[in-house]
Design a binder for these strands. Structure first.
Lengths: 189, 189
DNA sequence: TTGACTAGAACGAGCGTTCGTTTTAACCTG
DNA sequence: CAGGTTAAAACGAACGCTCGTTCTAGTCAA
């Protein structure tokens, strides 16, 4: 792993554990065993580290969602796969979910668009839009339908990250999906 | 308004606008026109300001939810009133919602329980629990049902706070409620 | 006069960042 | 291949500044 990637990985862990502002550059250099000079060679400043990390995670999410979009035909299968993916990530790599969903990026990345406007969220709304066109999902405001379809899952994820769940999220997917799909489905089968 | 309350009000605005860590005690003293000495007379430290603010907002929420719980008999009416209340607050006092729902309190109030475990959230789950007992809401895990019932609304609120909505949240309540209640209702009427 | 309150200058710790230097690696050129 | 040259990468001590907090002096109602 390149020093650059080591720094990003370390920053991800520290930012998600202690938060951006409670993590000093010294913490990052100490934990990553990369010197101050090197860190500043790869990144303009502390904000640059966070921006690069955020960008890379957004891109990863984007490509995973694109795969899901291609692998499944129906919006129902797509959206369910998305929730399953999110639950898996939250179970296996909680730091990633913490940094993506449970962090107020605006506080330290003021130039970034809010996460709701990011590409991955837009991809999820696109799935809902297609579901409406195909008649799978009731007609309505796409933003509202998306919020209600994915909102329950996102709340479950934050509950899990807060330590409220004793079992892995993965075990809840059937129940969560049952509620969520019922909310927006054109007809319950 | 007492100096203490002035400080809390100022802190609420600044914390929600710029975040806790981007708000200095100097910002608070300047904006509130209360001197450093006075602020430290009323509060132990910066964290004490945030803790008092958080506490007062939790208590306010708690009492409003209790009123709702008493004013409405059915879980359906209770939960709908809760969402309506949350939307109203988000429309009229966005700083309050930003500080309550869109802030990672753990970063600066490490001793506080996560918001999901707070009394107001517990009250909301209690409404769902009663709804299950009364047969209004399908049997299931209360946490999952609550997440799915309120998750859509909470996502709509964060969308509004992010500036994604052009109209007040209040105008969305019928549509959001239609989706949300369908998710958990024992039978759709 | 007393005691709660106000005031803001002063303090020291810790932060993000800079900078001068050393090390490494790659690439010429004869 | 050997020797010389260069640029990129790595290093970490040191800097300057901002922050939260403290402290001492002053104010004013009771």
């Amino acid at each position: 792993m390149s020093p650059r990637d080591t720094v990003l990985q370390t920053a991800l862990v520290l930012f998600s554990q202690k938060g951006y502002f409670n993590t000093s550059m010294r913490d990052i250099t100490r934990e990553s065993r990369v010197s101050t000079g090197s860190v500043y060679h790869y990144f303009r400043d502390k904000e640059g580290v966070a921006a690069a990390l955020y960008q890379s995670l957004l891109e990863r999410m984007q490509s995973e969602l694109q795969q899901i979009s291609q692998q499944h035909e129906s919006a129902e299968a797509q959206c369910r796969a998305v929730i399953s993916l999110l639950f898996d990530i939250a179970d296996v790599e909680p730091e990633v979910m913490t940094f993506m969903l449970y962090t107020k990026h605006r506080d330290f990345l003021p130039s970034e668009r809010p996460i709701c406007s990011s590409v991955p969220f837009e991809q999820m709304r696109e799935m809902v839009r297609r579901g409406m066109q195909r008649g799978e999902i009731r007609q309505g405001d796409v933003l509202v339908a998306s919020s209600c379809l994915f909102g329950g899952s996102i709340r479950m994820i934050t509950a899990a990250l807060d330590g409220l769940l004793l079992q892995p999220l993965n075990g809840f997917i059937d129940e969560v999906w049952d509620y969520s799909w019922r909310a927006v489905a054109a007809c319950v089968d």
